[in-house]
Nucleic acid binder design. Structure first.
Lengths: 205, 205
DNA sequence: GTATTCTTTGTACAGTCGTACGGTAAATGT
DNA sequence: ACATTTACCGTACGACTGTACAAAGAATAC
């Protein structure tokens, strides 16, 4: 009754190779034929496994997120406090060997901003994923509004510094600014008038 | 000897119209024919005025920078201190009516990161322009290293917050975080161990 | 063995792309 | 009037795009 079984592993292999290609060769003018040629397969093989080009783009973004979150995101959640989580995030994201991945990340980000309906899932998750991780890192005793505010700032600052680093390559200057920012998280004092109970956290747990 | 004179104004009109179109319709799949159709001119008219497509992209980026700097950059230089300059910059850049321009800005940014040689000028200026303005805003009495560090952080934070705002549209949350950041600039206290002479600046001049 | 389903590939087609070529109308200098 | 240069446009060509169609080889169930 059943013929040849579907080879899910083959698709996963191809997808990983396609993501590799996209990280290296860019995202804006991606097309079937050059990718297929680079992978040493026929164009139609890719079409068979991914359907349409838009479906392949969706698959690429999903796999890319998996990779990047595996390299950075999970590390953040295990940290005892926000300052350590932010430092871990910055260390991971600014590592030179991840530069190509983040160039692709920002290329997708920019394109998503101009085609929101096509990249709706990306736009929904691009902030929310990190937001959850960074709010969790602040523990339940932190005021929710403060936690959200701080998480928003950490995400924004890290991504802004990354944009600078990738554009200028001036690692010394950017790293210096990052250290300054991380220091403000580590020696946190509530601004005048704020009712923020979070002092420098003693290591919980 | 000389025939019909070159109509520079006509080119400027077309360029402005093309930039308008690009801001609205995006940058990734820009091509002669749809633009020409939207402007009500022939494809060859655009080719005649801009040469090749790459030259038109260069012209678009240049005009876009002029526009954005006219709307934000010059305001920053006239401010008496960094906090006021940063607040002015944030107010201008986060204004809803400029959202489309900044979506295009980040789309170009992302693409430039993946084609550095083609967008070399953009990458050189995208940080340096603001950096100069924000260092000037801190006055000559600020330690140069501190001024650079602070300017880097202001640029990064504003752009990171803009990325968040454009992706999520959550203006309340982002504005709250921005206020928190701007407050740290206004009530600046040197972090422990730093030799930073810059207190809250009394209005110079 | 046969039947069935998946994998891979080649070919082909309609569409869009940038732009080279050629020609006409308009504006200048002599 | 004339020559010259620009402004604008239509046509055309080769390259590339996504993908529909068809066919061959491989792996399963019976």
């Amino acid at each position: 009754m059943a013929g040849r079984p579907v080879d899910h592993q083959r698709r996963a292999e191809l997808l990983d190779a396609v993501v590799d290609y996209t990280v290296e060769h860019g995202f804006s003018d991606l097309s079937w034929r050059p990718v297929a040629a680079a992978l040493g397969v026929s164009t139609m093989t890719l079409v068979h496994h991914f359907g349409t080009k838009e479906q392949m783009l969706v698959a690429i973004l999903g796999r890319l997120r998996e990779r990047m979150f595996a390299a950075t995101g999970d590390m953040v959640g295990e940290r005892p406090d926000l300052a350590a989580a932010a430092r871990a995030a910055w260390t991971r994201t600014s590592a030179p060997e991840r530069a190509a991945e983040f160039r692709l990340f920002f290329a997708v980000y920019g394109r998503a901003l101009q085609a929101p309906e096509q990249f709706a899932e990306f736009l929904e998750r691009v902030v929310a994923d990190w937001m959850n991780a960074l709010r969790d890192a602040q523990g339940p005793e932190t005021d929710p509004a403060t936690a959200t505010r701080t998480a928003t700032l950490v995400i924004a600052t890290i991504r802004g510094l990354l944009l600078d680093l990738l554009a200028t390559g001036d690692r010394d200057r950017v790293q210096d600014a990052a250290e300054s920012f991380l220091a403000t998280l580590e020696h946190r004092t509530p601004p005048p008038g704020a009712h923020d109970r979070a002092g420098p956290p003693a290591a919980r747990r």
